[in-house]
Write a protein that binds this DNA or RNA. Sequence first.
DNA 1: GTATAATCATCGGATAACCGATATATGAGG
DNA 2: CCTCATATATCGGTTATCCGATGATTATAC
Lengths: 103, 103
Amino acid sequence: MKCCDMRGFLSYLILWLLGKKSMSGAELSAELERRKGSKPSPGTIYPALKELREKGLISADGNKVYSLTKKGQGELKGACAFFCRMFYDAKEMFGCCPLKWKK
Amino acid sequence: MKCCDMRGFLSYLILWLLGKKSMSGAELSAELERRKGSKPSPGTIYPALKELREKGLISADGNKVYSLTKKGQGELKGACAFFCRMFYDAKEMFGCCPLKWKK
DNA sequence: GTATAATCATCGGATAACCGATATATGAGG
DNA sequence: CCTCATATATCGGTTATCCGATGATTATAC
């Protein structure tokens, strides 16, 4: 058990990122690396994208650029609500974090 | 895959909660239910507490009331830093969540 | 058009996280 | 002391998540 490996948030973060901007797998991977500190393996990111596609939450254009579908937007909304309930005191968490990092 | 099951945050949340107040397993369980919407199984919460104890991050007094150790405080600090990096834009996430819930 | 690199994709396996069932301890009431 | 309810603890099994290796596709350079 690692107390802060944040396992299980990959799909949520993908939806969140695609909600801001359509991206390719490589772009998503780079953005995730910025957040987690390490780049997710290809064996992690692509199966996740595949499953999200199969569930109809995202779609890919001809250039493998992924976007949220309507259904995905709804899912993201629900996930955000859950996140906010789970971490309703996130502001305090931020307060106890003295570190700075590049955007 | 559930896009928002928040799997893997149990230990982090336990440390976070104990950082605010020492609690028994039952109190922790109730607080987690408030956040997640469902009470964690005994088979979930107690093994987690055991492992945190074995790692020296928390300690229990005679009445099974758990507290953070010094080491646990350090671990929590690191986990918070990681959380904040991971979700540096959490404020936006909160913004897209229209729901209200009981504290 | 071919070579090279980057990206995308799949597969099998390892691990972690969690649950349900069950067993033990603790405490309150009578 | 005895009973019952609650809290604590353990165990086995299931599932999800992720990684590394490998192969296929696409783009770029020449």
